[in-house]
C-alpha cells in the first residue's frame, strides 16, 4: 500500500486552520458551558420544586438526546427561528455550550454536595450570609474537587466538536473529509485528522494534570 504524503502536505495549512477553529469552538464551549453550568447547578439545587423543575428538564433533555440531533435542531430550526439566520460555527458553539453546560452543572452539583455539611454550618455560625458561605467556603472546595471530572468533560467536548463537520463548520474533520473527497483516499486524511485530535487531547490532559497539582494545596 502506498501512502501519499503529498496529500497531507498539500492539506496541512487547512488542517492547521481547521485545528484553530476546533480549538476556538471548544474553548468557547468550555467557557460558556462552565458559566451556564454553574447557574444551572445552583438552580437544580433550589429547595423549591417549581424553581428546580425547569433546570432538571434542561439537563434531562441535553443529556438524554444525541449531540448530533441537538446540533441539527439548533442549526436548522432553533437558531434560524430565533436569530433569523445562523452560521455553522455559531451553531456548533451554541450547541456545544448548552450541551456541556448540562454536564458541567452535574459536575458542579456533585462537587458542592460532596462538601461536608459542617462546613456551611460553621460558616453560618460565624455570621456569614449565604452568598459569603458559597463564595468563600463552598465554591473553592467544590471547584477543586470538580477539576478531574471537568477535565474529562473538556476532552469529550473537544472531540465532539468534530460533529460540526456534519453541518459544514470548517473545523478539523471538515478538512479531512474535503481531502478525502478530492483524492478519493481514506487513510491519509483521516489518520492525519486523528493524529491532530490526539495531539490536542494529550496536550489538554497534560494541562489538566498540571492544574490538578497546582490547586492541590496541601
Amino acid at each position: 500500500m502506498d501512502f501519499r504524503f503529498d496529500i497531507i502536505v498539500e492539506y496541512f495549512p487547512f488542517f492547521m486552520e481547521g485545528m484553530g477553529l476546533t480549538i476556538l469552538m471548544s474553548v468557547v464551549g468550555v467557557l460558556m458551558g462552565c458559566i451556564l453550568g454553574f447557574f444551572i447547578a445552583l438552580g437544580k439545587m433550589s429547595p423549591i420544586l417549581i424553581v428546580r423543575l425547569p433546570f432538571i428538564w434542561y439537563i434531562n433533555f441535553l443529556r438524554g438526546t444525541p449531540l448530533l440531533v441537538q446540533l441539527f435542531l439548533f442549526h436548522y430550526a432553533v437558531l434560524p427561528t430565533l436569530l433569523g439566520s445562523t452560521t455553522p460555527v455559531i451553531s456548533v458553539m451554541v450547541t456545544l455550550s448548552l450541551n456541556s453546560s448540562a454536564y458541567v452543572a452535574e459536575i458542579f452539583r456533585a462537587g458542592l454536595q460532596s462538601i461536608d455539611k459542617g462546613q456551611a454550618e460553621a460558616a453560618h455560625s460565624l455570621g456569614m450570609n449565604k452568598f459569603q458561605v458559597m463564595r468563600h467556603v463552598l465554591l473553592p472546595q467544590a471547584f477543586k474537587r470538580s477539576i478531574p471530572p471537568l477535565g474529562n468533560e473538556f476532552i469529550v467536548l473537544l472531540k465532539d466538536s468534530s460533529l460540526g463537520a456534519m453541518i459544514a463548520a470548517q473545523e478539523l474533520l471538515y478538512w479531512g473529509r474535503a481531502a478525502s473527497g478530492q483524492y478519493l483516499r481514506v487513510w491519509e486524511p483521516y489518520l492525519m485528522v486523528a493524529l491532530v485530535y490526539l495531539v490536542l487531547t494529550l496536550s489538554l490532559t497534560y494541562l489538566l494534570n498540571y492544574l490538578e497539582r497546582r490547586f492541590d494545596v496541601k
Binding site: 461536608d116 459542617g118 454550618e121 460553621a122 460558616a123 455560625s125 455570621g127 450570609n129 477543586k144
Partner: peptide, 28 residues
Amino acid sequence: NKLRAEVGMVFQQFNLFPHKTVLENITL
C-alpha cells in the same frame, strides 16, 4: 447573620476550612 456573629459555636468535628490556612480561618 448578625445574631449568629454574636453567638460563637464550636463543633465536635472542628469544621475548620481546609482550603484556608490557620490564620485565614480566623480572619475570613
